[in-house]
Amino acid sequence: MMEKRLRLVFIGSCISVDAVLPDLTEDHYRVYVGRFLSERTTSNILMECYRHGILVSEYIKAHDYCNGFVAVIDYRLTNMVDLIAAADFIALHHFITILMEGYGMRIKGIHALTSSKAIETLLKIVKKMFGPKVSNRIHVHMNIESLYEHLPKKILPSDLGGDQESLEFISGQWNEILGTKENINYMKEMSKAVSNEAYRLKEKLNGVDLGLSGTFRSLNVD
């Protein structure tokens, strides 16, 4: 199953390509770059992007040390209206929750590259998922030059006018790492790390499982 999922991620690279860049920023943040290569975006492709993000996050948790992440999403080649229509925002919200609460990911900034006004609609939805603190760190760039005010060219891929290898090349290196037997075995082992429902208390508090069942039996107020 893990091998099949990895192959699906790689096939999706003809529609989109992404990678965590090899060099840290001066304040020790990793830079993630995702780029859509086609005007048309489907819900299946977006879901594979989420799954790929989980695979990368799991690997980084095990092997990397950084203060957090800066994300750059390049929408310049895609139709933003089609992307919004294809997006499953419930799945996106779950993905963001897993990254921030499950993996404890600290986000220094999110940078969107697009000249489409439809980005405003997307941001109205996404900002509610991140909350006010991270929402204030979301930036939209109408041109590539304004991105350099936040990230230096020396750590960016050539696709973004930087000095590093192309995003496709760096992504290929990541795919090789994620596809190694060692990492696949690690991911299989980690997939077994789930809650044991046999130990969950059967009694519920007012029909809603708040994780406090059995803690308070009654409360008398004089």
Score class of each variant (00 low, 15 high):
S57F: 00
A62H: 14
F95S: 11
K124F: 02
V72N: 01
V81T: 15
L92C: 14
A112P: 03
H63K: 15
I84N: 11
G68N: 12
H93C: 14
L92T: 10
M105K: 11
Y65T: 05
E48C: 05
T41N: 14
G102R: 06
Y59P: 04
E58R: 03
E120R: 08
H94C: 12
T121C: 11
C66W: 07
A87G: 04
L77W: 03
A62W: 08
E48M: 07
A71F: 12
V33L: 03
T121V: 15
M47Q: 03
A71N: 09
V81N: 12
K108T: 07
V70Q: 05
I54A: 01
A86T: 09
L123H: 11
L99E: 05
E120S: 14
V31S: 06
N44G: 08
A87I: 00
C49K: 02
F69E: 14
D74N: 07
D82R: 15
G68L: 04
I45V: 11
G104P: 05
E58M: 09
A85E: 13
T42K: 11
I96V: 15
L122I: 15
C49I: 02
E39W: 11
D64A: 13
G53Q: 01
R30Y: 11
R76V: 00
F95V: 10
G53A: 08
L37W: 05
M100T: 04
L83D: 09
H111K: 07
S115L: 09
A86N: 11
L46T: 02
M105T: 15
L55K: 00
A86W: 13
T114A: 04
G34H: 08
M80H: 13
E39L: 07
A118I: 09
M47D: 06
L37T: 02
L37M: 10
R40G: 02
M80G: 07
N44S: 15
I119Y: 00
N79F: 12
K117D: 13
Y29C: 04
I84Q: 12
L37E: 05
L77T: 08
G109N: 12
I84F: 12
V81W: 10
S115P: 04
S115Q: 14
K124E: 05
I54Y: 05
M105Q: 08
V56Q: 12
Y32I: 06
I119F: 00
F69V: 10
F89Y: 13
E48F: 08
R76W: 00
D64L: 11
A62V: 09
D64W: 15
L113F: 04
K61M: 04
M105N: 05
G102A: 01
H94R: 07
K61L: 05
F36I: 05
D82P: 10
I98T: 06
G104T: 03
G68Q: 07
